[in-house]
Amino acid sequence: MTSDEEDAPSPEEILRVIQEQRVATVRWLRGDPLLLYAPWGVAWLLGYTALFLHYGLDGHPYAPISLSQALGVLMGAQIVAGAVSAFEIARMSGGVRGHQSARGTMYGYGWLAGMLLMIIIGVRLSMILPPGEAALLWGGGTLMVVAVMYMAGGAIWLNWEMFFIGAWVAAVDAVGVLMGVGWFLLLTAVLLGGGFIAIGLWLRRRR
């Protein structure tokens, strides 16, 4: 028979069951933070470190890495990260239909629009900028989209972690751009690359 015939649990037990189920469901809806954050951390750590070694802090390369090689590392790693997180997001959104998934879809198109605009602005303006400034435009602009979208995501799903992660990206982006290309690349590699790996591991451990 079904569980109807089990002995009645105590009120404390019942409240615990409700709470556990609520937490498990919220956790499921938010996805696995290790798959959502850490791949981007790895991509940025590798890609921006390669770019940093190419540019150096004072304009002298630290390693014989060409710009196209460094960009190749960044782009390749970002494609892998995008695939991993898209897989996780598809798993999350496949199970739910309604307002929740409409929000997710609009939010996804928001990301797409932001990144496409960044590419259009970058292609148009980087031709007339010195290489270092062009790198700042690409890096700083891309991270601006990331920062704003994370903060907006926090607002949509009332997720404070997501909001503060966005604010963190914005702060690193601002300081980096003000300090110039070398520092921008170093700070992004360490604080955002390393930071996203740490956040993914920490959120995963905590849940």
Partner: peptide
């Protein structure tokens, strides 16, 4: 009944206007 309580508790997390796919609910 604990099983149905858990079903309702899980579905209650989704706000009004949302539905959960059967396999997802089953796994959850």
């Amino acid at each position: 009944a604990q099983a149905r309580l858990r079903v309702v508790a899980a579905l209650n997390v989704l706000g009004d206007g949302n539905e959960m796919a059967f396999p997802t609910l089953k796994d959850l």
